[in-house]
């Protein structure tokens, strides 16, 4: 009966599209997490009265973050075509979407990281200093563990934005559910395909949100 209602769905194509969406989201999320942490830490540490107080670095990082956050994602992909081609060798397929996905969402996550770090009790950092801790110890044993719940919930928010980005990237040839919905659904006027892709994307979003909330709650001992 289902095949009668969704007669245009080819299970193989559909599964591949879902796999590509997961593939892009998870790889981009890993990249975003690393780059975002670096940006967020730089913003936090170089700020006024920070551990590495440096007006210029702070200004440069903040400017980069703001510029890349200001560019609409769809335009960012187009702007990054030469860079992507240089890096990946092609501008088509899931791998080619990764640079744009990471560069598009890392500044966003970087700001969330900065906010999370600012929430860490200054007194705890002071206590670590009074024990003779190195800056690296303060970063990895104090700042990151103490802000972990906020870092994870920030990553959840970013992951969901990323799923949306993958769909957009899909429309211009990156593959995944966005690609499938646009070419096989919208352009062929097969709206059952669009519908089922939407449902799957919503389910993926719910899964990410659920996992994120679960980890956040598990880690929060406050």
């Amino acid at each position: 009966m289902l095949t009668e209602i969704f007669l245009n769905i080819k299970l193989e194509d559909f599964l591949e599209a879902t796999y590509e969406t997961f593939y892009m989201t998870i790889l981009a999320l890993i990249g975003t997490c690393i780059l975002g942490l670096i940006l967020g830490l730089l913003l936090y540490l170089t700020t006024k009265e920070g551990i590495w107080e440096n007006k210029y670095i702070n200004l440069i990082v903040a400017a980069l973050v703001n510029i890349f956050r200001a560019i609409p994602f769809i335009i960012l992909i187009l702007l990054l075509f030469p860079f992507t081609e240089f890096l990946i060798g092609t501008i088509r397929g899931p791998n080619a979407a990764l640079p744009a996905l990471i560069i598009g969402s890392a500044p966003f996550y970087g700001r969330l990281v900065e906010i999370a770090l600012k929430e860490v009790d200054k007194g705890v950092v002071e206590a670590a200093k009074s024990m003779g801790a190195k800056t690296s110890t303060i970063i990895f044993r104090v700042l990151i563990p103490e802000s972990m719940p906020a870092l994870v919930s920030g990553l959840t928010v970013t992951a969901i934005a990323l799923i949306g980005y993958t769909a957009m990237a899909g429309v211009i040839g990156a593959g995944g559910l966005g690609n499938y919905a646009y070419y096989f659904g919208f352009q062929r006027r097969d709206f059952d395909v669009v519908f089922i892709c939407t449902v799957i994307i919503v389910i993926i979003v719910f899964i990410f949100q659920f996992i994120g909330d679960f980890i956040t709650n598990k880690m929060d001992k406050r």
Partner: peptide
């Protein structure tokens, strides 16, 4: 490391247990 300090608001790491908090200066 040879000058201990305690604070008005204790300044413990909430993410660590009692024993891990006490072990922190030893790790350092």
């Amino acid at each position: 490391q040879e000058i201990g300090m305690i604070f008005q608001h204790f300044n413990l790491l909430w993410s660590r247990t009692v024993e891990d908090n006490i072990a922190f200066p030893l790790e350092i």
